[in-house]
Write a protein that binds this DNA or RNA. Structure first.
Lengths: 107, 107
DNA sequence: ATAATATATATAAATATTTATATAATTATA
DNA sequence: TATAATTATATAAATATTTATATATATTAT
């Protein structure tokens, strides 16, 4: 596997590996939203919202456009949703166990 | 979106958001391997390999079985590979730009 | 020009992750 | 039992992430 891609994939997975950023992606599924509306919808402060948005933007997951005083964010990589669906399927298949077992079973 | 799933998805994405752990998943695509072989294949120390394996195991991504003194790890959630494919496709589609642009474009 | 609104960013504190080193635990064998 | 081989884990240091607070920047309206 290409080292370049490996790093990029890890970055992308890491940035999506945060509940707030998953919620942000979800909130943008129907289309672009301005920062304030995302913050309101998610019950976050303006600042933390902006910081998470930046984390996603600088890695190419979101794009932003200015419209007057507002900035509208939108999804740049719709594959995010496919990934979340994969995980949902995986969860379903894996079972409704509360916690994965962590034993090694003596032989 | 279910809060329970949200947390689980974030955890899974986060744990896969590390180059070494992606490599580990790759190394297991053809089948189970013992810790020592994974470490050798990836050029890692025994300890750090074991630590990454544990991170993946306790979150249900890998399972382990003991065979004599060795422990064989294998993939518990093959969806991981689908996710990596998604990212590969996303990368391809997104373009071969070195770095995503991070400007907001004044209006 | 000033004020108001919306967003971004600098900074620092708290927390989490990563890695290395040393050691413990497990299994097989002499 | 003692030793070797394999894997796991405790610990600590280095680094990174997350969040809050305060402040800066950009835009519009007065």
């Amino acid at each position: 596997m290409d080292e370049r891609f490996l790093q990029e994939a890890a970055e992308m997975l890491k940035v999506m590996g945060h509940p707030v950023r998953i919620k942000i992606a979800q909130s943008l599924e129907a289309g672009e939203l301005k920062v304030g509306d995302i913050a309101k919808a998610l019950g976050l402060t303006q600042s933390v919202t902006s910081q998470h948005l930046k984390a996603m933007r600088v890695r190419g997951l979101l794009s932003a456009r200015r419209k007057a005083a507002c900035v509208f964010y939108s999804i740049e990589r719709p594959e995010i949703y496919k990934i979340i669906d994969c995980i949902r399927e995986s969860s379903r298949r894996y079972g409704e166990n509360d916690e994965p077992v962590d034993t090694l079973g003596r032989s």
